[in-house]
Amino acid sequence: MRHIAIYGKGGIGKSTLSSNLTAAIAEQGLTVMQIGCDPKADSTKNLTGGRKIASVLSLAEQYGIAKLELEQVVVQGFNNVYCVEAGGPEPGIGCAGRGVISVMDCLKELDVFNELKIDVVLYDVLGDVVCGGFAVPLRNGYADQVYEVTSGEMMALYAANNIARALNRFGQRGPVRLGGLICNQRNAFMEREAVESLARSLGTQVAAFVPRDNVVQECEMQGKTVIEGAPDSAQANVYRSVARTILSNERYSVPTPLTDDEFEELLVRVKAEGLAA
């Protein structure tokens, strides 16, 4: 069983990428589960016809977390993929990080991965690693492979470097490793070079470049992944290719994050090279 976590800056396209990867992996005949670790609880929406499923925490509020059954917390979506949403509190109240911990404990208690004979678990985790709760997929024996979604924009790269800090810490204590960066292209200035340069500095690779394509939005409007909504499109093939890359990847590392000053220098250098060219 493989546990793969997808981290990245908020709004970078983690959920879109995750759900397309989930669908693409399922196409290969593997049993896949996607776990959305975000209070918004919309990570798996495009796998379930555009409708948000009930989150574990919303169910827990109704029934009590100790009384939840596997059938309540797991919903089957497109191509029989399993979908789970952690959920969480309203913005500005409570502790969403503790919610993630609580949901992971619940899934463990229900033994969902073994019960459902899952081959691949994909964790789609909220934005930056803001507190210990959102780092749970990186520890406690959950995800051992991590991919960071970024673009060539500064704040996305900054978040990627920040997440690498958490991975550096947990990588020294346990088996979690960085499999690479995935560039969700925004067509930023010197995008490819900036992402490649950061990957080199972190001691990792760029696992994939995902081009920007309007078909993604068109499919989302229908509540579908591209794999489902436009299976013959070039973009669908990109996702299939990324899925194959991830499943066959053998290059993992404990990243070596940059200091803030080093990070600034890297960006200035890449930009200068771009302007000179």
Binding site: L57, A60, E61, I93, G94, G99
Partner: peptide, 10 residues
């Protein structure tokens, strides 16, 4: 309870 920690106790 843990629920109150997650969702707030206000």
């Amino acid at each position: 309870s843990e629920h109150d920690v997650i969702f707030g106790g206000e």
